[in-house]
């Protein structure tokens, strides 16, 4: 065997072997009745941005590209999507309680404002998911306004409760 046999054969063999490491990509669900968009608190403009820049990881509607089925990139995709959904899953929005929704909107505000989301490694391969400054502004303004709406509706609900109790 010549030197180049080792140079090419080694990595190729390794690549082949690692395909047998079990990796489970988080499942795709298309029927999400508790989705944030279905809840009616998202404008059309923001809906579009969430779908193109966030939903691949932060929802149950992940569209897996071909390389997410090939190790080692599959490991990264599986891990990132799993963690992303644990942190924030737009498909399960209506399962979150009021405080959780406020926390998540506040996180959206902070992450998007700081340019931390969408992740650089993601936009590197998904150029269309990039958000420019104007888009970021729209998202953080939406997040802030929505937090106020949620906090206020809770107050209303509480005062109604009190009224009922008084009666």
């Amino acid at each position: 065997m010549k030197r180049w046999h080792y140079l090419l054969g080694g990595p190729a063999l390794l690549l082949l072997i690692i395909q047998f490491v079990p990796t489970e990509l988080p499942a795709v669900e298309t029927d999400n009745s508790g989705d944030i968009i279905a809840s009616g608190i998202v404008s059309e403009e923001v809906t579009k941005m969430l779908k193109t820049s966030c939903y691949n990881c932060h929802s149950n509607e992940t569209e897996y590209p071909w390389y997410s089925h090939v190790a080692p990139s599959s490991w990264l995709v599986a891990r990132d999507v799993r963690i992303a959904r644990e942190e924030l899953n737009f498909s399960l929005w209506q399962d979150y309680d009021m405080i959780e929704q406020l926390e998540k909107l506040d996180d959206i505000y902070l992450e998007v404002e700081a340019g931390k989301m969408p992740l650089g490694i993601y936009t590197l391969v998904h150029q269309s998911a990039k958000l420019d400054d104007a888009q970021r502004k729209v998202i953080i303004e939406w997040a802030e306004a929505t937090m106020d709406v949620i906090a206020e509706s809770e107050e209303d609900a509480e005062s109604e409760e009190e009224e009922v109790n008084e009666e």
Binding site: L102, E103, D106, I150, A151
Partner: peptide, 12 residues
Amino acid sequence: SKKSKQMATKGK
């Protein structure tokens, strides 16, 4: 900060 922000922060 606003009430909504304070509520989120307290939750965290």
